[in-house]
Design a protein around this nucleic acid. Structure first.
Lengths: 384, 384
DNA sequence: ACTTCTCCTGCAAACCTTTGCAGTACCCCT
DNA sequence: AGGGGTACTGCAAAGGTTTGCAGGAGAAGT
């Protein structure tokens, strides 16, 4: 029913190749002819079939973006950044959600494979070997994970976790807990590794609890267990869990930060709205999205315009597969306070602020977060 | 570089059609042959090219889902519901975000057109005529909008707005304000229409402010203007704006609900976490997502397997294009209280609760929202 | 032994484009 | 008049798959 190139050719009395050129290389066709063709196309409502075009050119001008859970506020900023970056380069982004399920993840890569020029794999839960295998099917860029031989952009959560632990031990906490993330998460492993090391260095005890669902519910459910560890400070895999934990602790009658301190990771917009405001590790999600798109597109210059004269030449120009690491920083707000071993003259949530350079500029989105006219509005303290 | 059907055929010594059948109609090929083919395919890492397959079958088994703003918590539940429904029917969903920009919206429909079997257009900002035109290019189901001749699923926000206004006037408010949504939003028009009528019926004054960006910032920015209207109660286009407004009013030193009442629309998860908890109109987003997928797939049975013998037959089986309307309900929490004209013996936020049947069951997601052990935990009051 | 079936496989057209190559027409120079 | 451009257009192959049709082989029925 929809008009094809042939219909337009017939209607305007030219060969289909001329119609094709009218759209993909207008300068090659006589202005007069071109206008006639365009008019017919317009009249018939013709649009080039992108699937057919992709079949022969090998380029779809689409990018797939697979995320673990679209409902996690961590992802939207990344998605939006990727989209705008892609749009600038005349590409479109198709997003898909895996529900944290590795099987769905694999399935989606296959589904996207031939309809996109590459896939951005965000926080994948699959095994490394599977990812490598899939990368032979479609160009891949992984985000929040390192896979040998694949381009990747990771946020340095290891450093962030270290900062968080140092912040807590600096406040006098000696008994720490870590709420780990989901099984298969590279990020969770990094956090655990780094937090463990930092705790050991500070001679503090660290209990790791998990794996857990990286959601509010996941955090809420662990409140009781956290209490049982006797920890006076907790680091969580992400902000959502921290927020759930906040609620859970509240339900248990524990006050934050007086009885127990909580630190999240991600710095989602929501973490500024909780009571108390959440101390957290800020990750540069937007930058990650942009970078990933750039890496994919750059690596992608080696198009395959028709098979040409066969597999001659050195098609294996697997140039240095870059791995970009983005820095993180600690944003100190109100959910962390002094611990039992703290110097006596210090007290209150913000007591530790003076240990660091005070740069009140916080890179977040909501400029109005600290209205200024209302409560004292302690500015965020940022450590990096 | 990736293996094609021809490679597999050559390797297993059969014709390509046999390979094709091995994958798309296994029962038609001798088990022995089939195994040989499968083995070769496995060895070569062959995967059918979905684009090529779509070209000839006319079916991609993909569905496009276009939303206005993926960062708005309203959408993820809808997306997830659509995804799981689609997955059940062996379809994949590709999501794209328009940034609230009608031009991007149109562009995306074109980009998706030939790569999906249909597009779910969620809260479109385009003109009706443009939508109709696009619907000739690819099957469309619109969500949160009514377009003549197109299948649609809408949530009855009109009814919701009416309930909200009646709730407020019932509490004794006589001066109301409405924070409208973005230009081009059908939902916003519906709300406005219905709210105006309800206010008139109750002989209350209603000031409409807008259009506004449907975000926290959008709500925050209007606090001052709301105050200037002298209204004692406000209804907002969505929860995000209501939450922003809450912050804005707080910054102005106005107390909610003592000085001013606020009602949102959507009942996003976040609205249960604000202080005070937000009174809001709950919309059945998940059901909408599921329904939309079903409508698309059902309307889609009329596949076009090859052009066959031409345009014979009655291809114009444009069967009754259904329009489904989903009910909404009012969830009364703590952001609404009595107004100046209220009976004297009533006071406090929950004072109006007894006016309605008290059904504490709220359909939301977070089962732990009311821990029970903590504060009195007033259960949500639901009106529908 | 002949027909009729069933089961399997191959052939080739079709889907909608893009693009290298070749051909035509015309103009400009010398 | 002849040579060399330039500007445009047509031809046909190619991309990877599906599928109606027909043919071959063997089994079963008469």
């Amino acid at each position: 029913m929809p008009a094809t190139i042939r219909d337009v050719a017939r209607a305007s009395g030219v060969h289909i190749s001329t119609v094709s050129r009218t759209f993909s290389a207008p300068h090659l066709v006589n202005p007069e002819t071109r206008n006639r063709v365009l008019a017919c196309a317009e009249r018939l409502g013709y649009r080039p079939n992108r699937a057919a075009r992709a079949l022969i050119t090998g380029r779809t001008h689409n990018i797939g973006l697979i995320v673990a859970d679209i409902a996690n506020p961590f992802f939207p900023p990344l998605i939006k950044a990727a989209e705008s970056q892609a749009r600038q380069r005349d590409y479109h982004i198709f997003v898909a959600d895996t529900n944290e399920d590795p099987a769905v993840e694999e399935d989606l890569v296959h589904a996207l494979a031939k309809q996109v020029d590459g896939v951005l794999l965000c926080s994948p839960r699959m095994s490394n070997s599977l990812i490598e295998q899939l990368s032979r099917e479609v160009p891949l860029v992984v985000i929040n994970r390192q896979v040998a031989g694949l381009p990747a952009v990771v946020m340095d959560v290891g450093q962030g976790a270290r900062l968080a632990i140092e912040h807590l031990t600096g406040l006098g906490h000696r008994d720490l807990a870590l709420l780990a993330g989901p099984r298969g998460s590279w990020t969770s492993r990094e956090i655990r590794r780094s937090a463990t090391a930092a705790a050991r260095a500070a001679e503090a005890r660290l209990t790791v609890l998990g794996p857990n669902a990286p959601t509010e519910d996941g955090g809420f459910a662990m409140a009781e267990q956290v209490r049982r560890t006797g920890a006076t400070a907790v680091l969580t895999y992400n902000d959502l869990m921290a927020i759930g934990l906040l609620e859970g602790l509240d339900a248990l009658g524990l006050r934050v930060p007086q009885d127990i301190s909580v630190v999240g990771i991600d710095d989602i917009a929501l973490s500024r709205l909780t009571r108390p405001k959440l101390t957290t590790v800020a990750t540069p999600t937007a930058a990650a999205g942009r970078t990933a798109v750039d890496m994919l597109l750059q690596h992608d210059k080696s198009a395959s315009p028709r098979t040409g004269r066969g597999r001659s030449g050195t098609s294996d120009d697997r140039r240095t597969t870059a791995q970009v690491t983005l820095q993180t920083e600690l944003v100190i707000r109100d959910s962390t306070g002094v611990g039992p071993a703290a110097p006596a003259h210090r007290a209150g949530p913000a007591a530790a602020a003076d240990r660091y350079a005070t740069s009140p500029a916080v890179p977040g989105s909501h400029g109005h977060a600290d209205p200024g006219s209302a409560a004292p509005a302690t500015p965020d303290v940022v450590v990096s």
